[in-house]
Write a protein that binds this DNA or RNA. Structure first.
Length: 240
DNA sequence: GCGACAG
DNA sequence: ATCTTGTCGC
């Protein structure tokens, strides 16, 4: 799939903040299509040896949830880990992987927040805009906003509010797991986003596309760090 | 000034 | 995110 280089990836926080201010106005919170037959999930993994970042994208036919395409990419992380600026750290490698897809998904789920962001443009929204595709923010932790813990029941939800406005929904996809923070990414509404998350979940905490992408990106990292470890004395178990 | 703080 | 062993439960 293609994308529009709306701006240059920067390393400067202030410039990144400026870019977010400019792009936030273009985020659409309404669906641009009615059917989603191809849903994708994306995730990244970090090397523990250097600044390598691995991205994996998995596209599945919906609602069957059969994988129809996958893509991977690797880059060096330039931007530092900085809450609220994830797009500048993981965006490059994720976009690179997306460009390698042979099919164009109708919606992409990111392991990040969408409009549940101080400037209303978390990575899910930011990348959805650059890729001009519907996107959903599906984070595992809170970034901003007030909320109550959902009941410990499958699909129990609770609103995520920010400045008196609901910017997302927290949902426990299965009993005894930490809930997910779902928010609009781009070109979609919260209700639809939540429906897709629920319909794409199959007994695990994460929706299938994201779960598989997570496993894939993690394999990439392990393979990289593993072979980078190279020859040498095997690390023996420490007894003291 | 202090606490919070996506991966 | 990654570092890490065992352990509790289905």
């Amino acid at each position: 799939m293609k994308f529009t280089r709306l701006h240059q990836w920067t390393t400067d926080i202030k410039e990144a903040a400026r870019i977010q201010d400019n792009l936030s106005h273009f985020i659409e919170v309404k669906p641009s299509k009615k059917e989603y037959s191809l849903i994708a999930g994306a995730d990244t993994a970090y090397s523990k040896k250097d600044n390598s970042v691995f991205a994996a994208v998995v596209v599945m036919r919906f609602p069957e949830l059969v994988t129809v395409d996958r893509a991977r990419a690797q880059t060096m992380a330039n931007f530092p880990y900085q809450p609220s600026y994830f797009a500048f750290r993981e965006g490059p490698v994720l976009i690179k992987a997306m460009q390698r897809l042979t099919v164009s998904p109708d919606v992409i789920m990111f392991d990040a927040h969408g409009i549940a962001h101080e400037k209303g443009i978390g990575m899910a929204s930011h990348l959805g805009l650059m890729l001009d595709v519907a996107s959903i923010g599906c984070a595992k932790k809170s970034l901003i906003g007030d909320y109550d813990e959902p009941a410990n029941e499958m699909n129990a939800t609770s609103p995520l509010n920010l400045k008196g406005r609901q910017v997302g929904t927290i949902i426990r996809t299965r009993v005894d797991v930490k809930p997910l923070f779902v928010s609009i990414g781009h070109k979609i509404d919260l209700e639809t986003a939540l429906e897709l998350v629920i319909a794409a979940t199959r007994g695990y905490r994460l929706p299938e596309p994201m779960r598989v992408a997570h496993i894939l990106s993690n394999k990439m990292r392990r393979n990289y760090d593993g072979r980078l470890r190279g020859p040498g004395p095997y690390r023996m178990r420490q007894f003291e």
